[in-house]
């Protein structure tokens, strides 16, 4: 669609060249100021005391733990949500059944809930005063203020990404290739590995990418369940907060810089994938 405009619009539907130039310049300057300055300030602050300080901040045991923890939480929650997202997309994108639209609403629900609430609900269930809190206590299990809580909060927040990317993609592609596969004698897994997965692979990767970015960068939800135990339950965004509040700006902005790099890589891969999928969509919402 966007190609339709590339040769220039018909004259009647164009603003005057001067107007266009002003609007374009204004928009670009605004975007750069508003969207790039925060990024620039992160890297500048991180580098403000030289590279040596960055190295010290990165090799700090607490920082290393926070990086490991972030990777661990993402490594658990992203695959879980990916598998379930594919399952959800399979039944919603390929079948009609009662309650289908309700299911879609439920899957998208976490997007319209405050991250703090997404953390709060797990405390209500598993916290010291939670429904299952005493039970877990007796069993010697810890969920809140421990890794399982971080995973649960992250899973809830990143729940919709994969399904939400795949459902419209699968609906658009239609079921006929899969139907062809089964008329040719393929069983479910043969159809899935040979036909479904190759067709959705870029979309799946897109969903996983967004899911991962959010999983590693989530703050509000994990802040509520983490308990802020230094060197134990601090993911990178939480570590950023703690260092910032300690006035260790170099430390805070160094870790923030790592997270910003993650964001930049995510945006780059996302743009590349959008090019591959051949569609533009605001699926990051």
């Amino acid at each position: 669609m966007s190609e339709a405009f590339s040769q220039g619009l018909p004259v009647a539907t164009r603003e005057r060249p001067a107007t266009r130039l002003v609007l374009t310049l204004f928009t670009v300057v605004l975007l750069v100021l508003f969207l790039l300055l925060p990024l620039a300030v992160v890297f500048t602050e991180a580098l403000s005391h030289g590279l040596g300080n960055i190295w010290d901040s990165l090799t700090d045991p607490e920082a290393i733990t926070s990086i490991e923890l972030t990777l661990l939480v993402a490594a658990i929650s992203v695959p879980l949500n990916s598998v379930c997202g594919v399952a959800a997309a399979w039944c919603i994108g390929r079948f009609q059944f009662p309650g289908r639209s309700l299911l879609i609403t439920l899957i998208e629900l976490p997007f319209s809930v405050s991250p703090v609430i997404s953390g709060l609900v797990w405390v209500l269930l598993f916290g010291a005063n939670g429904w299952f809190g005493p039970m877990l206590d007796r069993a010697g299990l810890r969920i809140i203020f421990a890794v399982p809580g971080l995973v649960l909060a992250t899973v809830l927040v990143t729940f919709p990404f994969v399904a939400r990317t795949l459902i419209p993609l699968m609906q658009e592609q239609g079921a006929s290739e899969e139907e062809a596969a089964i008329t040719l004698g393929a069983g479910f897994w043969q159809m899935f590995w040979r036909v479904t997965l190759p067709n959705i692979r870029w979309g799946l990767l897109y969903g996983v990418l967004l899911c991962n970015a959010r999983a590693m960068g989530e703050f509000g939800a994990v802040a509520v369940v983490s308990g802020h135990i230094r060197g134990q339950t601090m993911t990178m965004p939480l570590q950023v907060e703690a260092l910032f509040n300690d006035y260790d700006w170099v430390g805070a902005f160094t870790i923030a810089g790592l997270l910003s790099l993650l964001a930049l890589v995510t945006l780059a891969v996302k743009a590349a994938l959008e090019y591959r999928i051949g569609e533009r969509s605001g699926a990051l919402l």
Partner: peptide
């Protein structure tokens, strides 16, 4: 520029928070 528009969504909120504060 178009891919930059997603920056606020890709950037972890805590990072955006301290950057805007700074």
């Amino acid at each position: 520029a178009d891919s930059l528009i997603d920056m606020p969504l890709a950037l972890p909120t805590a990072v955006a928070g301290i950057a805007l504060t700074a």
